[in-house]
Amino acid sequence: MLELRDITAGYDRREPVVRGASLTVAPGEAVGLLGPSGCGKSTLAKVAALLHRPAAGQVVIDGEPVNGWRHAAPRTLRTAVGVVFQQPRLSADPRLRLRELIAEPLRAVGRSRAEAAARALETAEAVGLTGELLGRRPHEVSDGQLQRACLARALVLRPSWLVCDEMTAMLDASTTAALVNVVEDYRREHRAGLLAVGHDRVLLDRWCDRTVEWSRIAQA
């Protein structure tokens, strides 16, 4: 289980943007979190991915409370939650070729160059990227192709949970459907849990097992 218990979070000493939010994602379950822009749902997504330290509350993964955040979080926990952000242009290091971008997490956890390259190629194929495209840098591909690469990077370590923060907000209908299919295939195969954060009710209802309203899980 990925549990968010009574999370309050904000930035510096300003007013918190998330107050008392609680949410649970079971293994194999897809949960949609629906809220208007600026409501703090992206911050909650970062807390769930262990990328932002909450001011109060607990994140519990498989019964084990998380105590460190960002680099201080144990690597096995960090890599157990994959994350995809809204804007592919900002989420990809502009200097890396797509194949390096996808292989980067494998290299970071110490896999050999050859193994990383092979697994990256496999994952790239799963998101529909092949051939010459993988040798390009982010500014040489379209938003849709780059977001495919970002999804591949999130899946390449085979995480047990996936957090998608407005993953498809910048994309056209066909690419949206394609990426959702990739996530769903992955989820079925690995019995992974999903937290999909977004503002499009039609999309989240179609994609997820259950959709919760931001106003239902957090205080105003």
């Binding site: 991915a49 680099h71 900002l90 990809a92 970071a108 390449v156």
Partner: peptide
Amino acid sequence: PYIDAAISGGA
């Protein structure tokens, strides 16, 4: 965000 993604990827 790409730094966040790198941290999440175990770097």
